[in-house]
Design a binder for these strands. Sequence first.
DNA 1: TTCATTGGTTACCTCCTGGTTACTATTAGT
DNA 2: ACTAATAGTAACCAGGAGGTAACCAATGAA
Lengths: 110, 110
Amino acid sequence: MKNETAEHSCPLTKAMANIGNKWKPIIVCVMHERNLRFGEIAARIPVISRKVLTDQLKEMELDGLLTRQEFKEIPPRVEYGLTEKGKALLPILKLLQEWETKFINQVSVV
Amino acid sequence: MKNETAEHSCPLTKAMANIGNKWKPIIVCVMHERNLRFGEIAARIPVISRKVLTDQLKEMELDGLLTRQEFKEIPPRVEYGLTEKGKALLPILKLLQEWETKFINQVSVV
DNA sequence: TTCATTGGTTACCTCCTGGTTACTATTAGT
DNA sequence: ACTAATAGTAACCAGGAGGTAACCAATGAA
């Protein structure tokens, strides 16, 4: 979610600019226990395209949510890991999941 | 954030489909203490356009986040209020704000 | 008769997001 | 000589999200 006004606006807007999109919360979640290689992330989220995954990982690195470590090997190996900022998001995302699960049927059915 | 796969996917994806956009978290926040009329919400979020606000409120009503009560008066009066589901979001959004504030400077500066 | 008020609606437009597909580099293994 | 493996890129595209501006209905007040 691009947001030109994010810089001079409330923390909530900035937070949503960081993780308020389709894939980023999921990427954070799948990395909860250990660093993962690019291919491992892709395997855990099979429905995401490689291009979009690359884009998201780049943005998240810039936003300080995760680190990227490139090993100079052939075939290439790249490992991604959560930063402290990224890790701090985990309990919040867990709450969000619980919230969704709790109120799963409380929508107006049209 | 429209999401065709939301129905058969993880709660997190569904949660983000509910509130993962530019305005909805803010709308929830400004309604934290009491019901508000359309114009009051608009006044609390001056940068949102009327059309977008209307759209968001409609979607949030459908998603069970808030209620809409129309009084048959002239000029019209419409009051919006958080549902239990919407209220349950408040502490989570508060955590998100705190998270953002805490890590506010921890981004890679390019 | 005209205006102000409220809560919208309608038509239209732009740009971003996410998506597909094909392509790349480099080395080891057969 | 050819293939497999990894982590991407590049070119291109459709659709949706958010935005602007003008308009509307109903009534009381001036």
